[in-house]
Amino acid sequence: MFVIGCHLSFSKGYKGLGLKALEVGANTFQFFTRSPRGGKAKELDVSDIEALNEIIKEHDFRHILAHAPYTLNACSDKAYTREYAEEVMKDDIYRMSYIKGSLYNFHPGSHVGQGVEAGIDMIAEMLNRVLDPNQETIVLLETMAGKGTEIGRTFEELKAIIDKVEVKEKLGVCWDTCHLYDAGYDLVNDLDGVIAMFDAVVGLDKLHAIHINDSKNPFNSHKDRHEKIGKGSLGQDAFERIINHPKLRHLPFYLETPQDNDNGYAEEIELLKSLRTE
């Protein structure tokens, strides 16, 4: 089964997310539980989530993914920012507990000059306070492009975080194809090599999802600017290989490409479906 979706606006609630996903031809989706710039989430409406769960069951949706706000930084040099990150993640994981088989993705953070090792320690410490072996949701560390002082630009950095986390079974990784390519992992010319490297360092069993985005910038640029599929430096052929690779094809794929509105995803989802071999 090809699990393909996109990032959708939460403006019409949980049921609205499911209906919009159907409208654009998706069988999964990603969304922000609150503003991507932070702040409080809307009051939890359990009946609305139940309506979404009916859509998920009826249409065999898989792996609904929530994305943490961009302001979440577990390795900030400011205590109140780290505290906010922990509070948000706890609340978001609780909200996602109402959706079976759910995932929760976050940018590991920026150490803002404190050093990579210190940043990794703070991220792992927060995860050790947040993760519960009984929780429903798998939390995912996203691969980063390497801007500034970002943590997660290399597989080794992600592995270092995972090694320090106690509840490892509830922690995994989400690839972002734009970020990986911009970070210096050549998905275009050496996909097998990148997969083998990730497996050797982190383990493919830890890879739970893929953000599927082209890049506006060249290889190893460390810029992180997404582009529509086939319109950027990775190119359509690379994505055809990615979605059909025997070691990746079972994973859910989520578009985060530039769009004027959610309806714009329909064309890209149809394109990717046309490239998928069964």
Score class of each variant (00 low, 15 high):
28 T>Q: 05
243 I>Q: 02
104 Y>W: 08
57 K>Y: 10
195 I>R: 08
183 A>G: 07
210 I>C: 10
52 L>I: 10
107 H>C: 08
130 V>F: 03
232 G>A: 02
115 G>S: 11
133 P>S: 11
130 V>P: 04
178 C>G: 07
241 R>P: 05
107 H>P: 05
53 N>H: 13
65 L>S: 07
187 L>V: 12
271 L>Y: 14
28 T>R: 01
10 F>K: 07
240 E>G: 14
82 R>I: 03
224 D>V: 09
48 D>Y: 09
222 H>A: 10
217 N>D: 14
208 H>G: 02
71 T>F: 09
230 G>E: 06
260 D>A: 13
160 A>R: 10
53 N>Q: 09
1 M>P: 12
158 L>Y: 08
49 I>C: 06
80 Y>E: 15
154 T>W: 09
275 L>V: 03
269 I>L: 15
3 V>N: 10
39 G>Q: 12
180 L>P: 13
112 V>D: 15
120 I>T: 08
171 L>H: 01
96 M>Y: 12
144 M>R: 12
132 D>T: 11
15 K>D: 04
99 I>D: 02
183 A>N: 10
154 T>A: 06
84 Y>R: 11
106 F>I: 04
223 K>I: 13
181 Y>N: 03
200 A>P: 01
264 G>L: 00
273 K>G: 02
89 M>Q: 08
166 E>V: 06
143 T>D: 01
274 S>A: 13
21 A>H: 12
37 R>G: 05
216 K>Y: 02
9 S>F: 06
55 I>K: 07
238 A>N: 13
179 H>C: 08
147 K>I: 11
154 T>Q: 02
206 K>C: 02
143 T>N: 04
148 G>F: 01
125 E>C: 00
174 C>A: 12
201 V>A: 08
270 E>A: 15
250 H>M: 14
99 I>A: 01
219 F>L: 14
236 Q>N: 00
62 R>G: 05
181 Y>P: 03
184 G>K: 12
252 P>S: 13
76 S>T: 13
185 Y>Q: 02
28 T>Y: 08
248 L>K: 14
51 A>T: 01
147 K>M: 14
233 S>V: 03
90 K>P: 05
195 I>F: 10
54 E>L: 05
105 N>Q: 11
214 D>K: 04
237 D>M: 08
153 R>T: 10
55 I>S: 12
131 L>Y: 02
264 G>V: 01
30 Q>N: 09
20 K>P: 03
203 G>W: 05
166 E>A: 06
180 L>N: 09
235 G>Q: 03
221 S>D: 09
169 E>R: 07
228 K>I: 01
50 E>P: 05
102 S>V: 00
188 V>Y: 07
258 P>W: 13
197 M>E: 15
156 E>V: 07
198 F>G: 11
187 L>Q: 04
27 N>M: 01
141 L>M: 09
267 E>N: 09
127 L>I: 00
190 D>W: 06
166 E>Y: 10
7 H>Q: 05
230 G>Q: 04
221 S>R: 00
159 K>F: 06
61 F>C: 04
11 S>I: 15
188 V>T: 13
154 T>V: 05
34 R>I: 08
58 E>I: 03
245 H>T: 12
122 M>Y: 03
79 A>H: 03
42 K>L: 14
156 E>Y: 06
218 P>G: 06
101 G>N: 15
143 T>K: 00
